[in-house]
């Protein structure tokens, strides 16, 4: 599955500052594995308390979330609340 990945600006270190990249994966977990192969170190950053937004839905623990071909995945920091 080819997926368009959008990284919040605090997660762009391993991509050299690039905000949008292409990667593959049928789930978010597989996508992160692929991103880590392409951009070493990005996997650790994305596994440490990061949420995703897919189709407008904020998902806090997305590892097994399935991805459709052409999906737009936004990685964002995990939030908390009172």
């Amino acid at each position: 599955m080819a997926v368009r990945v959008h990284l919040s600006s605090n997660l762009r270190g391993p991509t050299g500052g690039v905000a949008e990249v292409e990667a593959d994966g049928s789930t978010v977990g597989a996508l992160i594995d692929d991103l880590d192969r392409r951009y070493p170190g990005l996997g650790d950053a994305l596994r440490a308390g990061v949420s995703v937004v897919i189709d407008g839905l904020l998902i806090a623990h997305p590892e097994y979330e399935p991805l459709a071909d052409g999906a737009q995945v936004y990685f964002v920091p995990q939030t908390a609340g009172g």
Binding site: S9, A19, G56, L57
Partner: peptide, 9 residues
Amino acid sequence: PSTMGFPFA
């Protein structure tokens, strides 16, 4: 887009 980049629903 939000500060984090994703489009608001």
